[in-house]
């Protein structure tokens, strides 16, 4: 299990062919209290970098981009009722969606934990 990061503050946790995607703890701290999340439909496919979800705080809305290409196989439906989970546990219970990875080669273009830490420093 390896976790990658994007410059747009998404994390990608890879387990086999499936990646769990969400926003980083740093991102949630910048956004403030999350009040709403718009998630994609299961079965939708995205190219890397496409807008896949939206996360909103009281005074900001941010697009969440698909960090890798692939098909959405599961979304975290619990976020609809408890968006606060993103603030409480962004990189755990606050995950957004699971994507079946179409091209593992794309992972090479993402950051590892150390590089992401430097990115947000």
């Amino acid at each position: 299990m390896t976790t990658y990061f994007t410059k747009d503050h998404e994390y990608v946790r890879v387990e086999g062919d499936v990646a769990t995607v969400g926003i980083t703890d740093y991102a949630q701290s910048q956004l403030g209290d999350v009040v709403f999340v718009e998630l994609p439909g299961v079965g939708k496919s995205y190219k890397q970098g496409a807008e896949a979800a939206v996360v909103e705080s009281v005074k900001a809305a941010s697009d969440v981009y698909a960090p890798i290409s692939g098909e959405v196989v599961e979304v975290n439906a619990a976020l609809a009722d408890t968006p606060a989970m993103i603030n409480e546990d962004a990189e755990g219970k606050g995950w957004f969606m699971k994507i079946k990875i179409a091209d593992k080669g794309e992972l090479a273009g993402l950051m590892d934990a150390a590089a992401y830490k430097a990115h947000t420093a």
């Binding site: 909103e56 005074k59 809305a61």
Partner: peptide, 12 residues
């Protein structure tokens, strides 16, 4: 629910 509005969402 101001995130629907122009002063936050701009072109969206």
């Amino acid at each position: 629910l101001s995130t629907r509005e122009q002063h936050i969402r701009r072109d969206k």
